[in-house]
Structures are given as structure tokens and as C-alpha cells.
Design a protein around this nucleic acid. Structure first.
Lengths: 241, 241
DNA sequence: TAACATCAGATGTCTGATATCTAAGGTGGG
DNA sequence: CCCACCTTAGATATCAGACATCTGATGTTA
């Protein structure tokens, strides 16, 4: 084990450990895991804690459990990718093995629209910072972004040009974005955006409109991202209920 | 309690019970739930079982737990809707309060393509049933569907025109679709599909390409659905990892 | 008034037990 | 030889009760 102690809850560490073991091939697809008793002993945790971790992994479709039989690695474990996972555009580009970049277009202070007031649960006099950017991969424009965030969440005199907004919110304002509700729309052609992204006429756009919340469910950031569909691909795991 | 005993696992019943209580307003948004000890006593289960249920509910963003403080109803509990939930197109239309219908275009037996072989893990001589349909809402075409399913999963001499494919697979072949991996793409204009759906030139399409699996992770059904974007809206809850 | 100490109550974790399910193997009658 | 039934080992499901640790509130003291 490494020297640095992990202060996160035990069951989370167990989840990560098991995921890592599956990814690294310690347990292969469809293979049976050791029994709960045995696995708990190996990991040095109680069976109850191990079971909480397994319950989450089952929920995430990483493993399959059968009463009286055993626990198996799902034939299609899905850790990564997937639109359900919230990651910054920068991260997506980097994971695709490209060099991320940003072209800064504009930033302004605006009053909220009717929809903004609903979204942020704010009053109509509150100031919003609106930032307009183009994200590039290997210097090629791939995403057009508009971000709106109430000024009260931001420290004054920050250079939005360089850092990621998520990072500024986290580091400077101590607001950690925990999840987002994302609306998905297709767009054939956009008078302003399509030329910016140098889209061929037949290239459609995928629009993600996202309301970001922090751990306390406070609405922090609203963003609209236009993705060039020939450069990005999204997928979702859909479960029957 | 009802007479019929519930043979599903206890923790699943607890999950449903708590969800129902939240939906029916027994516990309101942001409200604190009883302590685990108290709640377990109320529900007549052990604390360990209750905790497994709470762990899943936390994973689904229905509740928020804070060590040493308590368990709270999320301010935005999301049971329903959302693209992560796998439901048939018929169901979507019905939930939107419209009358679902189907226009049957064609069905044929085809040999699998290269991609199909990979998808279904079948050999190149296996027969696939390919069905082509248009789904309507209040008699207006809204979705164009192509479904591919290996013939071996289907009984012979079935009328695909009327029933849902998912239902046929469930009732006749005893194959229950448990989940699907869905790829999302935008499409500006499709030479064949756009006219069928009577799309205005500026109306883009959202394409969902879905590989459906049963409980044993066997690939059963591949479908491509073209949604008119002005009639359908999708959203996803994205969590940070 | 501000920093510190204490305490109640909540979630986190552990231990060890029993209940129930499943697959496999044995056993006997046909 | 085969099939139906029984038994059993081993796995997950659930339980009960204990202790550990964290958090927020309250009280105390310099």
C-alpha cells in the first residue's frame, strides 16, 4: 500500500480498488469474483462494507450478483466515457489524445433573462457573467461554448481567459460542481456557430444545455455547448426500470 | 399490507418504498429523513439492509447523506424521464399525452453486415430480421425506426405489425431487455428519413443507435431511431467522478 | 468576545450469526 | 441407462448489536 492515507470513506476506496482490478485484468470479463467472505478478507474490510461497495458496482452495471451463486464481472463493464459522466470539455479533448486549446471570444456582465431567473432562482437585478469561447483540439475548432454564472460566485479580477471555469469556481470560490442536468438537442445549421466551427454544410451540431449544481444542490453555472458531430461521439447506458 | 408477498429482494422493496414516500410528499425536498436506526425500525428491516437501499438511492441522486449529520431528500430527486431510463418509443409518446401509432414500412430477412457480426457476436451466415417502421403521435409521424434482431430469438409466424418488438421478445421468446448502450448523434438532413417524417428543412434529427442486452448480457436487438427534434426532448443527469 | 472543551446524535464500520437460494452430486426406482 | 428426487456445500441475503468517527450545538473560560 502507498504511504499516503486515503481519507475518503472506505466503501469508496473499495469501489475504486475493485474497478482498478477489473480494468487491469486481475478479474476478467464474465469471471467469478472471490466469495464475499474471501474478498472482504483480502481487502481487509468487513463484509458489510464490501457489500455496500458491491451494491454500487452492481448499480453501475460493473458486476452482476446472483443469490446463492456468486458475483461476476459484467461482460461489458463501463467505467469510462459515457455522457453520464460529467467532465469538462478540456478533459474530453485530452482523453481523445488531442491538445486542448481555447479561443476567447468575449465576456460581459448581463442581467438575467426570464429563464435564467428560474434556472438560478435569483432576482432580476442580479448580475451574470457571460463568457463566450471556442474550444480547439490540435488547434482545430471543435466546440463553441457559452457559460453563464452569477457574479456573486466569482472573485473579482480573475483572468477567465486561461483557466477553466470549473477550476476557478472550485479553487477561488470553493464551489465544487457535483452534477449537471443536461438537455440534448440536434442542430442542423446555426447561422453564427456553424461558420465559427468551420462546419461543412452537411455537418450537424449536437447541443448540450447544462445546468450545473454543487454538492448542496445550488445552481451555479449554466452552459450551452455546441459540438461538431463529426469530431465528438456520445453514448449513454440506458437501464430499464 | 397487501396480501401478495413480494418475492424481490428486501433492499429493492425498501428502495421503492422510500421513493414512493418521497413522491407522495411524506418526506419533502431538502427535508431530513429519520435517523437510520429509527427508519430501519419503522420499515421493519435491519440497519444493514436499510443502508444498502440508501446507498443505491444516494447513487441515484435521490438522497444526500452527510456523515454525522443525517440523510436528506435531494432538492431535485429524479425518478422519471431522462434518457438513462430505457423505455419504448410507444411509452414515450404515451407519457407525452399523445396517441401512439405505427406505420409499418417493410420487413425482410438479411445477412449481417461486418458491424452486425461484431455487435451480435454471431457468424456471417446467421439470419437477421430487419423491420422498418414509422411511429406516430396523434397520427403525426415523429420517429423513424429500424430494428435488427437475429431470427433465432424470434418465434416463426409472428405479426410484427401490431405488437411492440420488446413485448414479442419478452412474451414469446422469454427474452427480457434489461439495458441498452445508446449512441447519440445529430443529423441535419437525411435524404430518405427527413421527407418521411415531413421535416421542414431547418428541423434537425436526433439519432439514437441502441444495442439492447438482456439480463445475461446477451446482445438481442439493435435499433436505430430518428427523432424529430422539435417533437422530442431528452435530458441526462451527469455526475462528476 | 473569541477560542476551546464537551456532548448528543448521526452516519461509518466491524463482528458473527442465521436464512435462503443455487448448483452439483448422490441415490434409488423404472 | 436414465430420470426424478434428496441431500449437501457454498454462496449471497438479512439480521442484531456493538464500537468508531464525524458534525453541530452548547457551555466554558481566558
Amino acid at each position: 500500500m502507498s504511504v499516503k492515507t486515503d481519507h475518503r470513506h472506505l466503501y469508496l476506496q473499495v469501489i475504486d480498488r475493485i474497478k482498478k482490478d477489473i480494468e487491469q485484468g486481475v478479474y476478467k470479463e464474465k469471471e467469478k469474483l472471490p466469495s464475499e467472505f474471501e474478498l472482504a478478507k483480502q481487502l481487509g474490510v468487513s463484509r458489510a462494507t464490501l457489500r455496500e461497495a458491491l451494491r454500487v458496482l452492481e448499480e453501475e452495471n460493473v458486476i452482476i450478483r446472483r443469490h446463492g451463486v456468486g458475483t461476476f464481472v459484467s461482460s461489458r463493464p463501463m467505467f469510462t466515457s459515457g455522457i453520464e459522466q460529467l467532465s469538462s470539455v478540456t478533459e474530453m479533448i485530452r482523453q481523445a489524445g488531442r491538445k486542448p486549446g481555447t479561443i476567447f471570444l468575449s465576456s460581459s456582465i448581463q442581467k438575467p433573462t426570464e429563464d435564467d431567473i428560474k434556472r438560478f432562482q435569483c432576482n432580476k437585478e442580479e448580475d451574470l457573467l457571460v463568457v463566450e469561447r471556442v474550444r480547439t483540439a490540435n488547434n482545430e475548432p471543435v466546440v463553441y461554448c457559452i457559460d453563464k454564472v452569477p457574479c456573486k460566485y466569482l472573485p473579482k479580477g480573475i483572468a477567465y481567459e486561461n483557466e477553466s471555469l470549473l477550476e476557478i469556481l472550485h479553487n477561488e470560490a470553493n464551489r465544487y460542481i457535483a452534477y449537471a442536468v443536461t438537455h440534448i438537442e440536434p442542430l442542423g445549421y446555426h447561422e453564427k456557430v456553424s461558420p465559427i466551427l468551420q462546419c461543412e454544410p452537411e455537418t450537424a451540431l449536437l447541443v448540450l444545455k447544462q445546468m450545473h449544481f454543487d454538492e448542496n444542490d445550488e445552481p451555479i453555472l449554466y452552459s450551452i455547448d455546441y459540438f461538431k458531430s463529426d469530431k465528438f461521439s456520445f453514448h449513454v447506458l440506458r437501464k430499464r426500470v
